[in-house]
Write a protein that binds this DNA or RNA. Structure first.
Lengths: 170, 170
DNA sequence: ATCTCTGCAAACCATTTGCACGCTT
DNA sequence: AAGCGTGCAAATGGTTTGCAGAGAT
């Protein structure tokens, strides 16, 4: 391991580099948070990051996690995923413009790298006059293949039966 | 007024029609809520709808408003806008696939009808295997023209100064 | 008679906030 | 010495929930 590091290592380093470049202090807590983020495969929530970090730093407070994640988001190092009807905010380490598809039943989140997204964002900026910054995910909602086959009767959503399986409130 | 009604009337009728088609009872409260929705030009929040309806029905409870809006959303009659860092959920009467652009400073929401959105949604569905239902808005974030010129110094977002002007908690 | 819908009001709980202490610069 | 960052713990407040009564079918 000299030139190439593990993806996790690389990601951690990237996050820390962003913080450093912004003149932020790389405290032990922040390093731990960045590592926890990078270690999580999917789209970690604040709670998940908090839990991971707690193992190493039992004293760490939620506020620190919230602060750091918000800082990283402001700096564009991570993307915020505010998913309708989900209790927790998710984060996405993949900052390249892409689409997140969320299942309304099992709450699964899929990443979809579609070419035209970049063009869409550019066109949206041009047409609206907004300066678009991709610090939040582009989210689409639907029903994933597993849930579609599992609950064979409810094709779309207007079913009366079991809405949402895992999550809940808001 | 015989063949053509006002847009507001039309919209109200559309909402009621959807409810009726789904076998829901068109109670006085629901009619009032639909009217309030249709009367609101932009992207009304639950609180706004509630306030409007309260003028006519001082007894109406929040629960009823929440219930009805959720019902309308399930039926695809309105679109839910879960905007990051906004305190309230917004709704959009325009159910055609489109993009909503949100200003991170003034919380303004713009509608953008971009051709390629439909194609994007279809491609996302095809590639992910999800059955995508457009009951939530496709949201992009940025800084609107007014805020860009107003706060001339903060071009992007990583400024240290005043984040968010109007809103703020969650 | 049955079932849906509404009003009421308490409960929920993720997120936010204020302050004081500690550590870095 | 000055300031950023953290821990702590309480507050916040939009949204949800349970239940009983009213109204529709």
């Amino acid at each position: 391991m000299s030139t190439a590091a593990s993806p996790t290592e690389t990601e951690t380093a990237r996050l820390l580099r962003v913080l450093e470049a912004a003149g932020k202090r790389n405290t032990a807590q922040r390093v731990a948070i960045c590592r926890a983020l990078a270690a999580h495969p999917g789209h970690p929530t604040v709670a998940e990051v908090f839990a991971s970090v707690r193992e190493e730093f039992p004293m760490m407070s939620q506020a620190t996690v919230y602060n750091t994640l918000e800082t990283l988001r402001e700096l564009g190092a991570i993307i915020q995923l505010d998913i309708a009807n989900h209790d927790h905010i998710h984060y996405d380490l993949d900052v390249r413009p892409h689409v997140n598809v969320v299942c309304r039943h099992c709450e699964n989140i899929a990443d979809l790298h579609i070419e035209s997204v970049t063009a869409l964002i550019e066109e949206a900026g041009a047409r609206s006059g907004f300066e678009i910054n991709h610090t939040a995910g582009l989210i689409l909602y639907g029903v994933c293949p597993e849930c579609r086959s599992g609950f064979s009767d409810l094709g779309a959503e207007q079913s009366s039966g079991a809405e949402q399986s895992a999550g809940g409130r808001r």
